[in-house]
Measured scan of single mutants.
Amino acid sequence: MATDAALRRLLRLHRTEIAVAVDSAFPLLHALADHDVVPEDKFQETLHLKEKEGCPQAFHALLSWLLTQDSTAILDFWRVLFKDYNLERYGRLQPILDSFPKDVDLSQPRKGRKPPAVPKALVPPPRLPTKRKASEEARAAAPAALTPRGTASPGSQLKAKPPKKPESSAEQQRLPLGNGIQTMSASVQRAVAMSSGDVPGARGAVEGILIQQVFESGGSKKCIQVGGEFYTPSKFEDSGSGKNKARSSSGPKPLVRAKGAQGAAPGGGEARLGQQGSVPAPLALPSDPQLHQKNEDECAVCRDGGELICCDGCPRAFHLACLSPPLREIPSGTWRCSSCLQATVQEVQPRAEEPRPQEPPVETPLPPGLRSAGEEVRGPPGEPLAGMDTTLVYKHLPAPPSAAPLPGLDSSALHPLLCVGPEGQQNLAPGARCGVCGDGTDVLRCTHCAAAFHWRCHFPAGTSRPGTGLRCRSCSGDVTPAPVEGVLAPSPARLAPGPAKDDTASHEPALH
C-alpha cells in the first residue's frame, strides 16, 4: 500500500513536468492505449483535445483523470512512461527518471493478473537440437547421386540401376557391380574402391570401400567397409609401409569409374585409389579445392560414357583410347591431361624469361682521411668538412668512354686558381681547403699541381719545410723540376691526363 501511495503522490508531483515534456501524442498516448491504461473513449478524447488546445494541455488533463483511477493503472502508467522508446522521444523525461526514488519498484506484477504457477513436473524439458533432418536429407541425396545420367557406350558392359529405396527402410541396399565389389548404403556420403591386398588381414578377392557413415545421432565417422563389417581407420595404420605414394595433400579420389555407378572395369580391371599401398590413418579432407572437384561422367573428346580416367587438374575425364597418344593402361600417381600440362608450361616460361635485376654498384670503404676530388669540390665554400675520421664509401662506377685530351690552356685561363699578391707571391683563392683534413686555415699551394695542403698533414714525420718551391706529398717525388717562383700557373702540358701512381689516385688537379 505504501508503494501505491508513493506512486500516486509522484504522479501528482510530476504531472506538469510530464505534460510539458510530452510534445507529441505518439508514441506515449498510443502505448498507453495498447497496454489498456487508457480506454478507447479517453484516447479519442485526448486526441481531440490535443487538436484543440495543444499537446501539453491534453496530457495534463489525461494525467488528472489518471489520478482518479486505481493503483494498478497508475503503476502501469509509470512502466509505459519509462520505456526506452519514450525516453528517446521525450528527452525531458530523463530528469524525472533520475529523480525517481530508488525504493519504488516498478517491476512488480499487476494485482489480480498474476499467472498461475505451473508445477515443475509438468514443464517439459527442453529438446536438444538434433541433426536428424540433415541425416534424412543426406539419405535422400545419396540415391540421386547414384542414378545414371545416360546410357553407357556399346563397348562398356557395366550397366546398373540402383533400385529405389524407401527412406523408412534401415537395411542396406547393395548393387552387384562384379568382381566382388559392393556399394555402400544410402547413408554413405562418398565411396572409393580399395584393393584388398592393401588391407592387412583381408582374405580372398574381397575389396573394401572407404566410406563416411552418417549415424542417426547426427555425428559422422569415417571407416572402411569390408564385406558386411565396418573398420575404423586406426586398424589399417601401417607405419612400416615404404610404398606409400601419396598425392599432394591428398584424400582418396576415384580416378576410374563407370558411368552411372562406381566400380571396377569389366574384364577384371581393378579400380585404383589416388594413392597406392596401405590406407593412410588420417582421412581428413584435403585443403586443395581441386581434389574436391567432381569430374564429368562423359569423355571430353567423344562425349560418351564408359570407363573413364579423370584428370587431377580439371573436371574433365577421358577414354584411354581417346587420348593423344592413347594409353594402354592407367598410369600410377597423379595424372593430368594435356591442357593442364600446357597451362603449367605456359606459367613457367614467362618466369624464366623475366630479366634479372641489375646488381647495385659495389661499394668499397675508403680509409679515414681520404676523399675523392669530387667530394672536395662539392663541399660548401668557406666551411670545414665535419666528421673527417668517419669511413667514407667510394662507389665503383662504370668507366666513362675515352675522351680526347684536354686542349692547351693559356696562363690567363688559370687566373682564378691563384691570386698574385703585391710581391708576386701566389695566394690561395677563397674557399681553398686541405685535401686531407678539410680545413682551409693557413693552407699552402703546391707549386707543381696548384693543390691546397697543410705541410703537417702531408709530411707528418716532421720534415723541414723548404723556403721556396713548396710541393705536396703527391708531387714531391716527381722528377720534373719545380717552376720558378712567381709564375702564375704550371705549363698547360702538365694538365694533360697521364698515368698516375697508386698513392696519388685520389689527388687529381682540382679547380677552386
Rank of each mutant, 00 (worst) to 15 (best):
M184Y: 04
G218N: 02
P125K: 08
D41F: 04
A138D: 06
Q57N: 01
R203S: 07
I96F: 03
V20G: 01
G197K: 06
G208C: 04
D84E: 07
S250L: 10
I224H: 04
S195Y: 04
Y231G: 04
A202D: 06
V226H: 05
A21D: 00
P119N: 10
R9N: 14
L158H: 09
T183R: 09
D105R: 04
Q212C: 10
L7H: 09
Q173F: 15
K102F: 14
L81Y: 02
K165W: 11
L66G: 01
L255W: 11
D76T: 02
A140Y: 14
E207T: 03
K114E: 15
P56R: 03
K83T: 04
A258I: 06
N244A: 03
S107D: 06
T68W: 00
I181A: 04
A140H: 14
P109E: 02
A6G: 13
R92V: 01
P233C: 12
P176S: 14
I181V: 07
S168A: 08
L177E: 01
Q189R: 07
V22G: 01
P109A: 09
V192L: 10
Q44Y: 02
A170K: 15
Q189D: 06
D84R: 07
N179A: 15
A134D: 03
S107M: 13
A202C: 14
G197H: 05
C55Y: 05
G178N: 03
L32P: 00
G180M: 04
S99Q: 01
A19D: 04
L11M: 02
P95C: 09
L32M: 01
A246C: 13
D238M: 08
A202W: 04
L62E: 00
R15V: 02
G112D: 12
L81K: 00
A160T: 04
K120Y: 14
C55P: 05
E167G: 10
K120S: 13
A58I: 00
Y231K: 03
K111I: 14
V192W: 05
S234F: 14
Y90N: 02
E136W: 10
P148V: 14
A265D: 07
G197C: 12
S195L: 02
F236G: 06
E88A: 12
R127S: 08
G263Y: 14
G178P: 05
T130K: 05
E40I: 02
A58L: 02
R190K: 05
K120E: 09
K164Q: 08
L63D: 00
V188N: 06
R12P: 02
S241R: 04
A145P: 08
P254T: 06
L106I: 00
H35I: 02
P27F: 01
G242K: 07
P154A: 06
A121I: 08
R8F: 01
W65E: 02
S220I: 04
S99L: 05
A152N: 04
R113P: 05
F100N: 12
L177H: 10
R203H: 02
A134P: 01
Y85L: 03
L93D: 01
S239M: 15
A191Y: 00
I181Q: 00
V37A: 01
A193D: 10
P115F: 15
V20Q: 00
H30E: 03
R272N: 14
E171N: 11
W65C: 04
D103C: 12
P254C: 13
K253S: 07
I211V: 12
I18H: 05
A61R: 06
T46M: 15
Q69I: 00
S187H: 13
E45S: 00
L75E: 00
V192A: 05
P95F: 13
A19E: 04
P233N: 15
A271H: 15
M184V: 04
A73I: 14
V38Q: 01
A31H: 00
P154N: 06
V104Y: 10
V199W: 05
P95N: 15
K165E: 10
G242F: 13
L97G: 01
P163N: 15
G208A: 02
G267R: 08
E270G: 11
E45T: 01
D41L: 05
V37R: 02
S64G: 04
A152K: 10
V256M: 09
Q157N: 08
G91K: 00
